[in-house]
Design a binder for these strands. Structure first.
Lengths: 353, 353
DNA sequence: CTGAAAGCGCTTACAG
DNA sequence: CTGAAAGCGCTTACAG
């Protein structure tokens, strides 16, 4: 019980190393009072607050969120499980989540799923014990499938809230909504309005969940116009997607429009068009169902439609922090925006020509 | 002292919720023994280990890394401070760091600096108290500048190791090395070998540290060839870089080669060439001093030279975990690789034509 | 209004 | 070989 706290002046802890006991000693109060000015300042008179805060500043004291968490069960940390952090949209979401979390005093643990359900399950099982208050899942992969869906439910039941990007209210897994169906419908409709008679959907095989919705929206729009539906399912970043598009371009009724799930897929369509000397957008119009900055860096700049990563990240974190706080936030479906650039006709105002 | 631990069979804690006491009760040993099989199994006889491990499996017990950290001072967590998580190379590094950390049982806290020195300093001050064992800084920005450099030194002195990407042994801030000077030199030399008589360097103004080295390498190569040096410093993702290149293309001695710091900058050069109907690579060869997958998705595919994000992430984490373990790892300079694609002549083998 | 005490889930000397 | 006790840095009933 003796000699534990430093005397009035000596043994100043190195900056950022001070503990609540150091502050208490310097302010001449108990650790209880220090804790109270931190957590319930309303219970402490102004002059005491001032003294304690003086000591806090002087020592550069920052309470250890880990020690607090051990006591309160809240660690001010969320985990972000991302399908593939190196994909343009996903990395923009990661950035947005980091910013939104920071604004709420939350740390973000980054976990890359690499499109593996096994990894998803492992993370879900580990994270709650790692001091994580909640989990954001952002991926185009199907997380409702067999085991993963069960583990998500189990984790939620265990008290760790989970928010999943792109889930609509009718979905069991329910999260922050993106209406992929409407987005693909709008994209397809836009191409048809611009004169496309043979618009084709190009999606990645990793996108089982999102892909099914894109296909639904695409089919609806195509049917409405009395046209045929052709869906090309391929792998990302692979020469095969270029090959597939190439084949459609040299068919007897060649494709004259591509609705691509992602910007990388759209780029493979650009490559294919270039390969067989078709002009974009004149011979082949292209639009991607994903909003990423990269789209305007390339030549030709790719037209896009979708929710922004910023809106998505912000909504995911907001929704999650409500859940963590024990509230039941309303389900919101995010608005999508259309950015017409050089791969579709009628370039919109404000875009670089 | 009574009724604290569950009886032999009832009150099974929900999965992932078991504590070391639950395991001890089920295995019929003390928490000390459980902790020992976790941390010093060599001190425990095989049959006891088996019994305890049985209980661990049955309860799905995972020790809380936060509670352990409170005791040991190690939280098995590192922070990744990244200049801009939405930039292609940085996001690939983030992914690589996440994977490399995971392989070592470390969690990764993602912090986006958004190119702000202020934010860097704030993170550096907060993180050690947030239960972070070490910090990786990955940015092209200059972190040695005035205050930031001092805060890095201070944080290190406080006992939190920091590894900085792209620092060479001669650098005060010392980290994992990337020889930007040699990379730019090699890139420039390659263009000159391919016939460029007026190669120009295009770098971003955010890259003060890296930019200076790129410029040095570029100047060396250009001088060696008896050519003039022209350095274009611009902003990222901005129409201004396109404008700057455009101007050089319509000068009396037009540029016939661009050494771009990053792939996004290279894309702005492509845009400029397209704008004034110059052929790439015939009229204008382009190479980027950065290895990112995106480079092969675009048309024309961009030639690149640099270290891969994977090697970088792995080396950063390896170096950091050595430091955390109290060892003094040797400084390694990462090898760089050249990928010639469509924006330079003589496309290399194995690339999509 | 304020402090002593208990406890969050662990680990590690210290005794048996 | 094993366990009781102390303690990591906090917060929060519980008494004054």
């Amino acid at each position: 019980m003796a000699a534990s706290r430093p005397a009035t002046s000596p043994s100043a802890p190195s900056p950022g190393t001070a503990t609540i006991l150091d502050v208490a000693a310097l302010a001449g109060v108990s650790r209880t009072t220090v804790s109270r000015v931190l957590n319930h300042p309303d219970l402490v008179p102004a002059d005491t607050i001032a003294r304690v805060e003086g000591a806090i500043d002087e020592l550069g004291f920052r309470p250890s969120s880990r020690a607090r968490g051990l006591r309160t069960g809240r660690f001010d940390t969320i985990a972000l499980l991302v399908g593939d952090a190196s994909q343009p949209f996903q990395s923009a979401v990661a950035k947005a989540v980091a910013r939104a979390a920071e604004a709420r005093g939350l740390n973000v643990l980054l976990c890359d799923l690499d499109h593996s359900e096994e990894r998803l399950i492992t993370f879900l099982r580990q994270l709650p014990r790692q001091g994580v208050d909640g989990i954001v899942i952002s991926t185009g992969d199907d997380v409702s499938r067999s085991r993963a869906g069960a583990v998500i439910a189990e984790t939620r039941a265990g008290g760790t809230p989970i928010v999943i990007s792109g889930r609509l209210p009718e979905d069991d897994l329910f999260g922050v909504g993106v209406d992929f169906t409407s987005i693909a419908d709008a994209a397809t409709t836009r191409l048809i309005e611009n004169g496309s008679r043979r618009p084709i959907l190009l999606i990645g095989d990793a996108d089982t969940y999102v892909g099914a919705r894109w296909a639904a929206g695409y089919r609806a729009a195509v049917e409405r116009a009395g046209l045929d539906a052709v869906v090309l399912q391929t792998q990302y970043s692979d020469a095969t997607s270029t090959q597939l598009v190439l084949r459609e371009l040299s068919a007897s009724t060649p494709a004259d429009g591509i609705i691509a799930g992602t910007v990388p897929l759209a780029l493979s369509a650009v490559r294919a068009a270039h390969h067989c000397r078709r002009l974009v957008p004149d011979d082949l119009a292209i639009i991607a169902c994903e909003q990423v900055g990269l789209a305007e860096l390339v030549t030709p700049a790719v037209s896009t439609i979708g929710v922004t990563a910023e809106a998505s990240g912000e909504a995911l974190v907001e929704h999650l922090s409500q859940l963590i706080a024990g509230r039941n936030p309303p389900h919101a479906t995010l608005p999508y925006v259309l950015s017409e650039r050089q791969t579709t006709r009628h370039p919109a105002e404000g875009e670089t020509r």
